[in-house]
């Protein structure tokens, strides 16, 4: 069984936001909401400065707080560990939004809670998620973490990576290469 994950190479990412816009097109994300976003983390004082640059989204955690918190099971794990919301089962209680340490979810105008799906509909056709496809710097990669031939697997073997808020014990599957 595949275990899907994504890497963002902070060395390459320039926070251009092509990923944000590609995702908005691909998934018809409503105005005012974003399934992914970019961050510039600035450290230091002039002239000794550094910036960490990355593109963040739902981390498709292996121990997802949102899945635990959903009373109807609308938030669930799909094949490969992709966390998805079944809109037809979502009652709009928003417990998942409050449970998520990463604030990755939003309320869709149609009344259900929505978020990044790792473009499951594309993955099923053997394509990369829209954000990974568009990225002009090649900072994003997606694949089966357990497949030794996948880019993400090889990157995580070769390079140091971090996850967001490791203390939350959510076991995210979105990794940021340093």
């Amino acid at each position: 069984m595949a275990r899907y994950g994504m890497t963002c190479d902070q060395k390459l990412c320039v926070t251009c936001n092509a990923c944000v816009l590609a995702c908005k097109n691909e998934n018809q994300v409503p105005e005012g909401a974003a399934r992914c976003w970019t961050v510039q983390e600035e450290k230091g004082a002039f002239p000794l400065l550094s910036i960490a640059t990355r593109s963040e989204r739902c981390n498709h955690c292996e121990n997802a707080a949102c899945v635990s918190a959903c009373p109807t099971g609308a938030s669930h794990y799909e094949a490969g560990g992709i966390v998805v919301v079944s809109a037809d089962k979502c009652v709009g209680c928003k417990a998942c939004i409050l449970a998520c340490p990463y604030e990755a979810r939003y309320v869709h105008p149609d009344g259900y809670v929505d978020k990044c799906t790792f473009c499951l509909h594309r993955v099923k056709k053997g394509l990369d998620p829209a954000c990974v496809s568009v990225c002009p710097t090649g900072a994003l990669a997606f694949g089966d973490l357990d497949d030794p031939t996948s880019t993400v697997h090889k990157q995580l073997q070769a390079r140091k990576a971090e996850v967001l808020k490791p203390d939350e014990d959510t076991r995210p599957k979105m990794f940021f290469l340093t």
């Binding site: 635990s68 918190a69 009373p71 109807t72 099971g73 089962k89 009652v91 209680c93």
Partner: peptide, 13 residues
């Protein structure tokens, strides 16, 4: 759905 597809890990359930 609380009856049909309950999620016993959910405090709201």
């Amino acid at each position: 759905l609380a009856i049909l597809t309950p999620n016993p890990t959910a405090p709201i359930w």
